[in-house]
């Protein structure tokens, strides 16, 4: 794997928020560097507030980095996500990069199966085929069939999260960012999520994740970054971390 070009090369990445109303700075992280290859799974570690979610959101470009580069080898060419035009970022979010949070933005009057099918529809899949796949994944994550045509805005947190995951993972991306996706999931759904992530990883999807209980995905992790110490642990050191 080391001989191939990385999918993602992060160099000296830093983020500081400037808050004008307080006339102050909020420092999140600096000097983050790592490579990520296709099919690799990178775990972000660190205590609360260490900047794990902030780093994910910076890679996703909800946050604008103040220094460094995020070189991403897109199917359309190499691009620095740190400075790429907004429309290029929007394009990559539609086609290559996925972000899964613990929150579903339910919309009024859109059925669960339509929410899940939407990424496929936008990617040009036929309506019936997209719906078939959507139902398949809703089933995999343990959403009961009688809820497939209901509006998730009324679902419980756990059920909403299943819909959210089914939607986020239905269309394989090249790079997947996960922000505590197992929060509020029951054991069955957690197992389904781990199975799906293993399949995606095996098919070459590169994954960067923050997990409240990293033990859930222990077998998938190739490397870790500890944001508290900013040390990158390689595969051999991983065992110690995860065993805890």
């Amino acid at each position: 794997m080391e001989t191939t070009e990385p999918l993602l090369r992060v160099q000296g990445l830093g983020k500081t928020f400037r808050m004008y109303h307080l006339d102050s700075m909020l420092h999140a992280f600096e000097g983050i560097s790592f490579d990520l290859h296709a099919g690799e799974f990178l775990l972000l570690k660190g205590r609360n507030g260490a900047g794990k979610s902030t780093l994910l959101r910076t890679l996703w470009r909800s946050y604008l980095p103040v220094e460094g580069h995020i070189w991403y080898r897109s199917q359309l060419g190499m691009i620095d996500l740190a400075r790429a035009a907004d429309v290029d970022i929007a394009l990559l979010r539609r086609q290559e990069i996925g972000f899964v949070t613990q929150f579903l933005t339910a919309r009024p009057r859109v059925a669960a199966q339509d929410i899940v099918a939407e990424p496929l529809r936008l990617a040009g899949h036929a309506p019936e085929e997209a719906l078939d796949q959507a139902r398949h994944w809703l089933g995999e994550f343990g959403v009961r069939p009688e809820l497939w045509r209901a509006y998730p805005s009324t679902f419980s947190g756990g059920e909403q999260q299943k819909v959210n995951l089914a939607r986020a993972l239905i269309l394989p991306q090249r790079l997947l960012l996960l922000d505590e996706p197992t929060a509020s999931l029951d054991a069955g759904a957690r197992a389904a999520l781990v199975r799906r992530l293993a399949d995606l990883k095996a098919s070459g999807v590169a994954i960067i994740g923050v997990f409240h209980h990293p033990g859930d995905v222990a077998e998938l992790i190739d490397r870790e970054i500890d944001l508290a110490t900013r040390a990158i642990a390689d595969d051999s050191e991983r065992i110690d971390h995860v065993a805890l």
């Binding site: 700075m25 400075r83 790429a84 035009a85």
Partner: peptide, 20 residues
């Protein structure tokens, strides 16, 4: 704390991937 201009994000680049 004084405002340090070096913590501003760099200006974005023109579109590179967008074909449309």
């Amino acid at each position: 704390m004084s405002i340090d201009m070096s913590v501003s994000p760099a200006p974005l680049l023109p579109p590179q991937l967008m074909q449309t």
